[in-house]
């Protein structure tokens, strides 16, 4: 493998890791506040469809982005209603949201565009286009550093940079602000937060709303950045890989970045090569596809660095009278 190929793989790693990263951070906020969310997949899918649909109709990707975020936040609201207000089972609610998105997107796509459950192809201003950084063209001639700058740093779409910036931002919010402290506390011991006179319900709804916002960005990136339009089931399990990455990262923002880059790299390699030879053993492409899930199970099993979820995760909070 030469330098140019390696650069290309790393370049697509960044692009493929972005939706995972945004969704993973979305799950981070929700689960740190004690709301399990296996509906990341559905929210991404809904955001992907509505961003593509509104971008196609209006011709502006920004309108699409807003519509995608709105769709994702509506589903987040349902999840909040079920798991916070009505104290239902958060896992079942997540399953329902995944199906709701899978069904509704195709239904509405068929009714609006009549193209068998897809949106028209997006072009021009209806998509996020690569942003060329200054001097990328000039620096290309510098050996080693130049191509790295031109391929990896420059030339991605807006949401890729947002995704990377979201990592320090999430870290700062969660670990350096009062809001973040309270949010984490509500995921560990909601009773204590309540005793301190802070509303558990409001904190959890805020966390779920942030989750919806970030999932909306992830979905919009899928349909308007990575691809050019919506196709049926286009999230293709990415929400679950993001969930896997979240566990892999042990519910921490910086680890989430590395986990998502790792899973992005696996996907990039899987896309490029059919079979991979490692020390004389041929690994089939299916193994590469399954690897993120296998790694997550290994981590969950606790044989390599045990992952411990937030303690109050999945438990509805019942105020004592």
């Amino acid at each position: 493998m030469d330098f140019a190929t390696a650069l290309q793989i790393l370049d697509s790693t960044i692009r493929l890791a972005t939706p995972l990263l945004l969704a993973c951070l979305a799950g981070l906020f929700s689960e740190r506040a004690g709301i399990f969310d296996i509906g990341l997949e559905g929210k991404m899918l809904a955001a992907a469809f509505f961003s593509a649909a509104f971008a196609a109709i209006s011709g502006s990707v920004w309108v699409g982005l807003l519509a995608g975020i709105a769709a994702s936040m509506v589903l987040s609201g349902i999840h909040g209603l079920a798991s916070i207000t009505f104290r239902g089972n958060q896992l079942i609610s997540g399953v329902a949201i995944n199906f709701l998105a899978a069904g509704l997107t195709v239904l509405v796509a068929q009714a609006w565009f009549n193209q068998g459950g897809r949106t028209p192809s997006l072009a021009g201003d209806a998509r996020f286009n690569p942003i060329e950084w200054p001097l990328a063209g000039v620096m290309e001639n510098i050996p080693l550093l130049g191509p790295v700058y031109a391929e990896l740093v420059s030339g991605h779409t807006f949401l890729v940079y947002i995704g990377i910036l979201a990592v320090p931002a999430s870290w700062y919010v969660l670990f350096r602000t009062r809001f973040g402290l309270r949010l984490r506390a509500v995921g560990e011991n909601p009773g204590a937060v309540d005793t301190a006179g802070i509303s558990v319900v409001r904190l959890r709804y805020t966390a779920v709303a942030i989750c919806g916002l970030l999932c909306g960005l992830a979905g919009a990136y899928l349909a308007t950045g990575l691809a050019a339009g919506f196709v049926k089931d286009m999230s293709a399990g990415r929400g679950f890989i993001a969930l896997a990455a979240l566990i892999f990262a042990k519910w921490r923002p910086w680890y989430a970045l590395s986990a998502c880059l790792l899973f992005g790299l696996l996907e990039a390699i899987g896309n490029r090569y059919q079979n991979i030879e490692v020390i004389g053993i041929t690994l089939p492409v299916q193994f590469m596809q399954a690897l993120p899930y296998i790694l997550t199970v290994v981590i969950l099993a606790g044989f390599v660095g045990k992952a411990i979820p937030p303690r109050a995760g999945g438990e509805p909070y019942v105020k004592e009278r």
């Binding site: 239902g88 609610s93 069904g103």
Partner: peptide, 25 residues
């Protein structure tokens, strides 16, 4: 008709939502 098969997925989702998650409602 002009209704795609995915309608069933929506009904399925709503049944799971109301009998499972929103049971308390």
């Amino acid at each position: 008709s002009n209704i795609p098969r995915e309608l069933i997925v929506v009904i399925q989702a709503l049944v799971i939502l109301f009998t499972g998650a929103l049971d308390n409602m």
